[in-house]
Design a protein around this nucleic acid. Structure first.
Lengths: 151, 151
DNA sequence: GTACAAGTTAAAGTTAGCTTTAAGTCAAGA
DNA sequence: TCTTGACTTAAAGCTAACTTTAACTTGTAC
């Protein structure tokens, strides 16, 4: 029953692939020390960090944002429950906003499907504020102005 | 006042970049004929199609799904309002599901932030059913099994 | 008739979040 | 000691949805 965890141990206990754990380390989300032979040795605390990353991703944070959140944890001591609670407190309003966006979209959609106006000029669905309600990655052209005269 | 639209016309009137319009054509979402010199000439109906694509994306459909939806429109005649309404009818339940997922996640999160258990074994947030509530693109490792013993 | 904006193509680049590959080195049980 | 599984790195690959670039051709206003 050793003190440290190998990358395989962490992988098994978090459900992550080892490649993802190395990637997270390169990205500054995790830390490890090394064995004499150069293999990674993790502190148990890393399990909590990985778990945090996973939950944060589920909520919709990017790895960049997650790195920033992790960086705000105390360096000098092991984070407490209160520390973890603090860094995740902002997630609730975030989810609320996502939900509200989708609800607005759904309501407009109900109207539009009923009237068959989809793709017509006056349709409320063209409101740019709704774009990016659901967003992926990559350079996506987000429209800054309302389409001029679809008809 | 010509019958046809150039790619620039379509770009201006839909708010899309010309590169996106060419991309959509390569992907089978749009069609065009050509001028004598080989430039694209669009029918006005293309504006409706582009608009449909944009709204469908906002709802969260991939271009593949959108192509399939467009393919189900009648070939022999110009689609009617009823046609457009039909192909978009499935969007409502889709949004409902997305909203329900986010609400479940939010509720679990409220509990977890309160108790500070984030990243602890028993936390409801590890339930794999919630993963992919918010999802991007690219090969993402979606966990099939509950992490064994985070603590 | 000429200049210049607008259009053409193929191919490569972008982004996030990883995975895969290649070519090795380390660790541990028999 | 040997074998085998676990581990290492750097670099390239993957996906979606486009954009950018380069090198050229068309179309049109004057």
């Amino acid at each position: 029953m050793d003190e440290w965890l190998s990358i395989g141990d962490v992988a098994r206990r978090t459900g992550m692939a080892t490649s993802a754990l190395r990637f997270y380390e390169r990205e500054g989300l995790l830390e490890s020390s090394r064995s004499e032979g150069g293999q990674r040795r993790y502190h148990r605390e890393v399990l909590r960090r990985v778990a945090f990353v996973r939950v944060a991703q589920t909520v919709g944070l990017s790895l960049d944002e997650i790195r920033d959140a992790l960086a705000s944890l105390p360096q000098s001591r092991t984070p407490t429950k209160a520390d973890w609670a603090r860094v995740s407190r902002g997630w609730r309003p975030r989810l609320d906003e996502q939900i509200a966006n989708l609800e607005r979209l759904r309501d407009k959609l109900s109207d539009c499907i009923g009237c068959g106006c989809l793709s017509l000029r006056a349709c409320a669905l063209y409101n740019p504020e709704d774009r990016a309600a659901v967003l992926g990655t990559g350079p996506r052209y987000l429209l800054g102005d309302v389409p001029s005269d679809l008809r």
